[in-house]
Design a protein around this nucleic acid. Structure first.
Lengths: 211, 211
DNA sequence: GAAAAAACTTGAACAGCCTCATCTTTTAAG
DNA sequence: CTTAAAAGATGAGGCTGTTCAAGTTTTTTC
């Protein structure tokens, strides 16, 4: 069996992460002190720092669990996408959006995104960036799948379109978490409008009209 | 003439902003202490806080000057855009990109963007968001101009395309400032690839090919 | 021009993130 | 089982952004 020390370490790390996840969500990332987490996890402040480099790292660790779930939940959509290009893209994107607030508050997202931009070369910054890359890759992969099913023109470059669409969905999401009064419905509407013309380009349909 | 007090206030604010602009660029935003700015501007720490609410606000004030210039420099391109859709869009975007590092370092951009996301409801957060909105509006306006010149299909909705394109250019810029080793040339190449298919959609040409 | 009021400056003190020298616990060696 | 070594926990203290009660300068009042 695993040594005592090893088991204790794992238990402490788990308790710290659980404490963070709960307190960040209920009290807000900013207003939770490391001391609070230490107390809840029944360790000292110094011990928290033996497991996580900074407060931001702890946040990224909680966000990463959520993102991992979202990526996994995207796979079935790639395996069996809707037969219209815009439906397929929106199915994947709405999937991302709808799960985003399940375990995380908008304030947590703001802090996490800000952290990943401000500290791109820390382990947690890289971790966040890597998950971002995997999400973008999933969008690109969906386009490739649709190309395989002859729903998207073969001469379009999947990575460029995937990056474009991911940029737009990410930007829309950032605006969503920046403003507390924007709803998920509004976020969906916003991205749907931007996707529509691109989807029509991709499928080769007549472009959408203004009416 | 303006009262003595008023002139002194203006001079102090200017000195603080100049100190910030110089030190942030030369020593990095993070490592500059408010105390350093106070010393260089020949005021006390408390006085710095009479003029700016937080350290982040001071940064946004320096960034805002730069963005203001970029927006102004965009106007001539709207007045007389290149005759090809992709050239027109890229002329405007390259204009943004090429000016971005004139007075600001990548580190300053990272901190500023992070600040604007994490503190969207502070005056400086709103200020940054407002300038972002104006940049996006400029892209949208360019599309409208091109529609007026019959270079872009009339039935496309300018705001949706403008938002889509702005999202992509913004996302590419964030990746650019996150990685110190990405060059402006690489940034240009990156966005050009994403713009190409959209520009072809907009103009109604045959879509670009993979070759 | 003197006194009162208003506006502003100041820096010591506070808050919260993080470090590190010291102490405690676990493991390994004999 | 005892002892030495390794690993890890601890919390007081350092650092820096921010606040605010007290002091100073400018303006207004009479």
């Amino acid at each position: 069996m695993a040594g005592l020390r090893e088991r204790q370490k794992a238990a402490r790390e788990r308790r710290i992460l659980e404490a963070a996840s709960a307190k960040f969500r209920s009290h807000g990332y900013r207003s939770v002190k490391i001391e609070d987490l230490a107390e809840m996890a029944e360790v000292s402040v110094g011990t928290v720092y033996n497991y996580y480099e900074t407060k931001g790292d702890i946040l990224i660790a909680t966000v990463a669990m959520e993102v991992e779930e979202v990526i996994a939940a995207g796979a079935p959509i790639l395996a069996n996408p809707p037969q219209r290009v815009d439906d397929a893209l929106l199915a994947l994107i709405y999937q991302y959006y709808d799960h985003s607030l399940e375990y995380l508050s908008k304030e947590m997202w703001r802090a996490a995104i800000a952290h990943s931009i401000e500290h791109p070369n820390t382990p947690s910054g890289r971790r966040y960036a890597e998950q971002d890359r995997r999400l973008a890759a999933q969008v690109t992969e969906l386009i490739r799948v649709l190309q395989g099913r002859k729903l998207v023109r073969q001469n379009l470059i999947a990575t460029d379109l995937g990056t474009l669409i991911f940029g737009a969905l990410n930007q829309a999401f950032i605006e969503f978490v920046k403003q507390d009064d924007i709803t998920l419905v509004q976020l969906r509407t916003q991205i749907a409008a931007q996707i529509a013309p691109v989807a029509s380009l991709m499928s080769g349909d007549a472009p959408v009209t203004n009416q």
